[in-house]
Structures are given as structure tokens and as C-alpha cells.
Design a protein around this nucleic acid. Structure first.
Lengths: 217, 217
DNA sequence: GCAGTTAATGACTATCAGTCAATAAATGGG
DNA sequence: CCCATTTATTGACTGATAGTCATTAACTGC
């Protein structure tokens, strides 16, 4: 009896149907502006059904975030499977990241700026949120891996523990992302334009410094 | 006739009364969880009055943010007035920043995670938001100043334009902040504990690399 | 085909941002 | 001091929307 299995598949399909609708609307209008009713309509389901598949709006947000992280993880994996110097792998990973955030600015803003958790009930964490953290860890691990390769093959010179270096590169990516999201009147943007830089070039400058660091004589 | 002036003062006092109430509640519960009714009650005013002083909840958020930025700006100014090597000034600025965010985590989260703008009506920008940007720019300028001092006195060695370096340090601060706010269960924290590092030490490592960069021979 | 189980529905409730007509307080000329 | 006018304050009301739940529909296996 494959009924259990079929039902499981159907459930997953519904879940996906809802998630896809939510992602599409979020990309168009932002997450805050998207209502559960709209998502229900787009998914061709009633609102009540939404709540059978996602505990609340915040869970749905976490699921969207999870999707994006999975995609990034996949990109990083693909990069890592190439046989190239570690330093190049790191650069390509950061490029993947920049590509992703530039693909849909509304979506990126939504993902980054929603305060999913603001003092959430600490004992009853959504399992999706947990999974997001796990994927984030995995992504970070891939960066660590690339750095280790680079240290081995000599393309990266650093005093830092690869884990710490990966962490700092992660900080920089986040910071750059925030900057990218923020208002255009920001002075940073002016500097940016003055010097005719792209996000990618800025990131490369950063990496050049960090991946080729030697002590001052 | 000092009546106009007195009325002006009273208006400012009201505005401040409201803002203080909002800041206190935000520090306790986060901004999202704080309702306009609660703020009104705490400020001993009716809700309608709140809206005479702040256009909407988002304006109030901007005002809170402005306060925090002013405080940071003041801290940076104080640092800059010392007669010390530029590299040290930069380090002290980042320390001030870390102190501020660690003072009240709920408040910091609220400030950083609220999406004030998500596709705001672009032509009708709140003037408070403008002021926030200006202060942010001023803060950034102080960092640039400190870097220039460091380049002059030889305590900082870098190929980068001081403005760009300040920008990158800014990215790192933002990234570190996000990390501090979001990833409490994340791998980063584990690394942290493994290596027994504080936020400040991590930042210092970063600065050591960036403020003492020489080309590999 | 029918009893029991599972899934889906949408009208309903609760909460909260924001409004506005009514009211109160302050002002200043006579 | 009085009253007309201006300015400030109020809180009941509205509208939007997240989330619920009793009811209905669909499916399952005997």
C-alpha cells in the first residue's frame, strides 16, 4: 500500500505550492506587504489550509530563507567541486553570493530585513529555523574547506585559523549585503560611485588583503 | 513675547517624553512587540497625541535609531579628540561600537532588524530618516579622519583609500553585529568558544590585518 | 455503500496602526 | 475679566490582517 507515501508526496506538493506562492509574492512586494490571504489565493488554497502547513507567517518566512540558503549552499558546493586553487574557490564563492543578492533586490531585502525572531519564545523554536542555522553552518563549512585548500596549495597566506578567516569573510559578506540593501543616499554609495567600483571589486580588494597577509617586516 | 519659544520647548518636551517611553519599551520587549497604545500609556498621553508628534510608528522607529546614532557619534568624537596614534583611535572607535551593541541586546536587535523602509514611498521620505543618514555619514567621516591620522603618523599601513578602508571596517562592524544578533546558536559562536575569543578580540584581529597590510614579497 | 478518518474551508475573532469629530486649554484683543 | 479664535488633546472608531475553529468535503478501508 503506497497510500501513505502518496499522501506524503501530496502534502509535500501542497507545502511547496504554498512556499512558491509566498516566494513569488515576496519577490514582487516584499514579505511584510504580502498577506496570508494573498498567498492563499495565489496558491489556490484557503487561508485555513496555509495554517495546516505552516504554523504561522514567521514559519513561512523561515521556509523562504531556508530555500535561499539551500540555493547558496548548492552554489558553494558546485564551486568547491572544481579543481582550482583555494584562493580562487573563495573568490568564486563570494561571487556566487553577490550574484544571488543582486538577482532580486526586493527578495533579498525581504530575506535580510525581516525580524523573524525578536525575542522569540526561546523554548519553542521552529524546527525550520533550526534547519536554517544548520544550512548556514554547512555553507560556512564549505568556505572553511576552500580556505584550507588554499592554505595547502599556497594560494592563501594567512596567520588566522581557517575557521576564523571564514567567519570574517562571512561578516564582510553580510556587511556588504546590508550596505547594498540600504538607502542610496548613504555616503558609502557615494564613495562607491566616486571610485567607480562594483560590489565584486570591493569584495576582491578585501579578499586580496585577507588571503595574502604577511607581517610587516 | 516668549510664548512662541515656550510652546516650542513644550512641544520638544512632549516629543522627548514619547521618544523616551518608546525607547524604554523597545529595550524591554523589542520594537515590533511594543504597541502605540503602550507607548501612549507610558508617556501618559493619548494615542492620538502620539500621532501629532510622530507621523507613524515607522517615524518613531527612525527617531529611536537617530538617538542611538547620535550617541555613537558622540562616542566617536570623544575618541577622536584624544591625542593618540590613528590606529589606536580606530580600535577605540570599534570598541565603542561593540560596547554600545552589547549594552542592551534587545534594543540593539530592535534597532538593527526593523525594516523601516521596505519599498517606502520614495518621494515622501521622512525627514528623520534623512537625519539618520546624515549622522551615519558623520560617523563614517570620523572613522575616515582617524584612518587619515593613522596613515600620517605611520601607525596604519594600507594601500587603500582611507574612505574605502573606513567603508570596509564599517562592513565588518555591521557583519559582526548581525552575527551577534542572529546566530546565537550558530557555528560562529562555537568557533568563538573553541578559540575563546570575544567580539572585541575578533575585531582587533581584523584591524591588525587591515591596518598593517603589506604586499607579499 | 458506509463508518471513520483526514483534509480543506471560510466566516469569525483579536489585535493593533492610524483617523477624526468632539472637547478642552490657551491666547490675546477689547 | 470675558469671549472669540486658535491650538492642543482626546479616545471611540475604522480598516487591515494574522490566526482560529466549527463545519463540510474528500478519502479510505472494511
Amino acid at each position: 500500500m503506497g497510500i501513505k507515501e502518496r499522501k506524503e508526496r501530496e502534502k509535500n506538493r501542497r507545502r511547496d505550492q504554498i512556499l512558491s506562492a509566498a516566494i513569488e509574492l515576496t519577490g514582487q512586494q516584499g514579505f511584510e506587504k504580502t498577506t496570508m490571504d494573498e498567498i492563499a489565493e495565489k496558491a489556490e488554497l484557503s487561508k485555513g489550509t496555509l495554517y495546516l502547513y505552516y504554523k504561522d507567517k514567521s514559519s513561512l518566512y523561515q521556509a523562504i530563507k531556508k530555500r535561499a540558503l539551500q540555493s547558496l549552499h548548492q552554489d558553494f558546493l558546485t564551486v568547491l567541486q572544481q579543481d582550482k586553487p583555494g584562493a580562487l574557490l573563495v573568490k568564486e564563492m563570494t561571487s556566487s553570493f553577490l550574484d544571488m543578492i543582486q538577482k532580486n533586490i526586493t527578495f533579498t531585502k525581504a530575506i535580510m530585513l525581516y525580524r523573524g525572531s525578536e525575542s522569540s519564545d526561546s523554548d519553542q523554536q521552529s524546527s525550520i529555523a533550526e534547519k536554517c542555522l544548520n544550512i548556514e553552518n554547512d555553507v560556512n563549512m564549505l568556505m572553511v574547506k576552500a580556505i584550507q585548500i588554499g592554505v595547502q596549495d599556497g594560494s592563501i597566506t594567512t596567520k588566522l585559523d581557517p575557521k576564523l578567516l571564514a567567519l570574517q569573510i562571512g561578516f564582510q559578506m553580510r556587511g556588504l549585503l546590508q550596505f547594498y540593501i540600504l538607502d542610496n543616499k548613504n555616503m558609502g554609495v557615494k564613495i562607491f560611485k566616486e571610485q567607480n567600483l562594483t560590489l565584486g571589486e570591493l569584495m576582491d580588494q578585501f579578499l586580496n588583503i585577507h588571503l595574502n597577509h604577511v607581517e610587516k617586516p
